[in-house]
Amino acid sequence: MKRNYNFKHWIFILPALVLVISILVYPIFYSIYMSAYDWNLFHSDAKKFLGFENYLSLFKDREFLHSLWLQLGFIVIALPIETILGFFVAILLNRDGKFYDVVRALLLLPVFVLPVISGLTWRMLLQPEYGMMSFILEKLGFGVKAWLAEPNFAYSMVIIQDIWRMWPFMFMFIYAGLSGMPREYIEAAQIDGAGFWKKITKIVIPYLRPTIATALLLRLIDALRIFSEVYVMTGGGPGNSTLLLSLYINKQAFEFFNIGYAAAMGVILLIVALVIAFFIVRGNIQFEGEKG
């Protein structure tokens, strides 16, 4: 039987494989190749072989280290807040009824708003004088300011924008896990006289741990490669105060035309993403068809 099927699966797999190899796998190897050169976008003929030198220079590049730092801060601040918000709102909304169905549907909207529109909208809200948020901040006594021109504030707003958009993603994941939780768990705890916090820390969190871990890893990969929202919102500025990793790579590649150097950064980012992907994959796949 095995013999019989020896090659037929390839007929099905091959089209996808060929496409993915040519637009994904080959380009990755090509970028590894590029990363070994001092390569200017407009002078491909004059490229110079450097070996690992691009990678070594990265760790002396203060702007790179700065963007790495910003990226790390972005992740470390945004993700826990998104998770906590998502978790508690999921508990609040874990009820039946038309009202709650509608609320859950509405909360999901920001997740799917185009990143570009989201970034531009926040930029609009923060315009001095006529932006709604600036207006409110002014009324609260913070004065009239071009908020996105203040480095720390711009960075905070980039993070708040992401929290606004993505906590409902965590919420949806956690809610899906929570609604699948057997009622007896909670009831048993109630009989034992457990309080609200005890129920959460002793029953709900342990039960949801794999769900939260998966959601968090997926968010982590997305947060790591965030680009569009920030690019349209601040362009990495003012100065380089919101120049997250992808934005810096883009700047090196398509503003300074150092594509060899940018490719090296791309490879580093890719490796980090693949390590996270490894954990996602290890935790959760289930596709073996042999069960049936």
């Binding site: 095995k2 990755i28 680009f227 990793l245 992808s246 791309g266 490894f278």
Partner: peptide
């Protein structure tokens, strides 16, 4: 639906391909 040796490798590869950051891919 088929049984073959590189099955796992191929399945895992597709899953991992999805995680490639766009900025890493856009340069090449």
């Amino acid at each position: 639906r088929y049984v073959f040796r590189s099955k796992k490798l191929i399945a895992y590869s597709f899953l991992i391909f999805r995680m490639v950051p766009q900025i890493s891919l856009v340069i090449p």
